[in-house]
């Protein structure tokens, strides 16, 4: 069992899930409540990683942050190295790859809130921001939990983007799924099996915990 890979994968998944919550909340709020005509374009863009092959996504991340692109040059000047084959690169790739899993459950949670509750909060003197924290967020608890679980589990088992962006550097970018790949390549099926079981067990536990917790989340309109 490669404990280093497991620890690295856990760290990557936690950071990705946390970042996606922070990025996903305002994005989902905008998708759910904006009346702009072109908001479908944003919806489409955030859903693209669902249908893009991970290799294609990884390839474009490499290009975007490579030394031939302005973004890559900026990043290089700022940090002194390229994004490719670093842990930060993995985080950026994972965030983009799991974006739909963050935005969609949050949008679903937001739009299923009775709009009258938001009106009521505003009429009672609350700003949009206060309404967001006091009404929308608490009533979206189950959507938030789903977002954390899905983005965590999705990142935990991700392979293609990690391989493209991170390569396979032990302790830096070798995640548990790549470890399994290496083990199988080397014909060490027994060890591959143990590692795979650990991966499955962690993912199962995380999802089960969230769905168990969601069971008793706030009913949205208890008397409806």
């Amino acid at each position: 069992m490669n404990w280093q890979a497991l620890a690295l994968t856990l760290r990557l998944s936690l950071i990705t899930a946390g970042s996606l919550l922070v990025i996903g909340l305002p994005l989902a709020y905008w998708v759910a409540f904006s009346r702009r005509r072109w908001k479908f374009l944003l919806q489409t863009a955030t859903s693209m990683p669902l249908v893009m092959p991970p290799t294609v996504l990884g390839f474009y991340i490499l290009i975007a942050f490579g030394s031939s692109s302005p973004l890559g040059r900026l990043y290089q000047r700022w940090t002194g190295h390229t994004l490719a084959f670093t842990f930060t690169g993995l985080v950026v790739g994972s965030i983009l790859y799991s974006l739909p899993f963050a935005v969609q459950p949050l949008v679903n949670a937001f739009v299923s809130i009775d709009p009258r509750l938001i009106d009521a909060s505003r009429v009672l003197g609350a700003s949009r921001l206060r309404t967001f924290f006091r009404v929308i967020l608490p009533l979206s608890a189950s959507g938030i939990a789903t977002t954390i679980a899905l983005t965590f589990a999705h990142t935990f088992g991700e392979f293609g983007v990690v391989l493209m962006v991170g390569g396979d550097i032990p302790g830096v970018t070798r995640t548990i799924s790549i470890d399994v790949f290496d083990l199988v390549e080397a014909g060490r099926y027994g060890q591959a099996n143990i590692t795979s079981l650990v991966l499955l067990a962690v993912s199962f536990t995380v999802l089960a915990l969230v769905y168990w917790w969601n069971r008793r989340a706030w009913p949205r309109t208890p008397w409806a």
Binding site: D114, R116, L117, D119, A120, S121, V123, V135, P138, L139, W218, P219, R220, T221, P222
Partner: peptide, 15 residues
């Protein structure tokens, strides 16, 4: 606006 508004479905905060 200092308006009191009681909605038809009341819109009490369920949480």
């Amino acid at each position: 606006r200092s308006v009191g508004y009681v909605f038809q479905d009341l819109a009490l905060f369920p949480h």
